[in-house]
Design a protein around this nucleic acid. Sequence first.
DNA 1: TACCAGGAGAGCG
DNA 2: CGCTCTCATGGT
Length: 326
Amino acid sequence: MTASFTRSSCSSAVTSAEPGARPCRVTLDGADYDLAATLNSGQAFRWEERDGWWEGVIGRRWVRLKTETHPPGGEGTGEGNSIRSPRPCVLFAETATPVSDWRWLTGYLRWEEDLAAVLAGFPADAPMCEAVAACRGLRLLRQEPWECLASFILSSTKQIRQIRQIVARLCEQFGEQLAVPKGHGPVYSFPSAGRIAAAAEAELRACKMGFRAPNLRAAAGMVAAGAVDLDGLSARPLDEARAALMTLPGVGRKIADCVLLFGCGFPGAFPVDVWVMKALRRLYFPGRRVSLERLRQFAGGHFGPQAGYAQQYLFHYARVHVKLKH
DNA sequence: TACCAGGAGAGCG
DNA sequence: CGCTCTCATGGT
């Protein structure tokens, strides 16, 4: 099942003297997409919920999103949570400027990905079944590699909430202002590697990124100079791409795997952070001492070709579970 | 107050 | 190899 049915409406006036200010809408059909879980599960850091919409920036476009999910059997089917029956889901999207081709959006969201096929590749053990049941509709995104890389260089030993604040300051300070509909506050593009490389370390530290500032600046310089070709990574073998990323300062195994999974489309990349580490130990090795490297080894063999997707379910499941306790 | 946060990298035995 | 320490900042 793919989301092939598209309805869109744009103002066709192209000669307007006002840059922006002409909203454009589209409606896309799909299935099983939890926008809140997906945009708020520590993959991307620029989405905010306002008035029932998720507002954010993709590339150089402001956009806001909303979904409506319909139960497949109509009324009277109760809360039956059968994994086997996908729930139809409609996406509403609005931009500030005219759009004729929406692939930049469907690609970012992986809107047309067959989630059931992905889930079918997960191991059928109890922990994964629980995670899948608890995080229905959770998706991976396909982000721009540079924004993903820079964001995760800033992520080390930071809470997700703070990563968002730092990224917001960085964009406000060094990004370019984008068109928004009337009544909305200003938004900014994610600054290019060249722009960040040209900034002084003190300017970056003013964004409250602390000791990560020299790493971000140096990594930006290497990317801007072509020392690491981010857009070429997806065509290389996983191990090679990872090694290339790890030549960048501030990029170790975990952050490299985040970029490979969220930005470069490697489905087998499996980032192990403190949350996933705790989840793996508690769910699969209770009462035993297992090293980080051993956990990675286990994950690579146990979760199959969609290991990265499984990791996102474990991560989100672990975080939501902790939040429920408070 | 003490501890933790989607870590990395250096120094040590 | 595996362990420990530090880095900067804000939230609980």
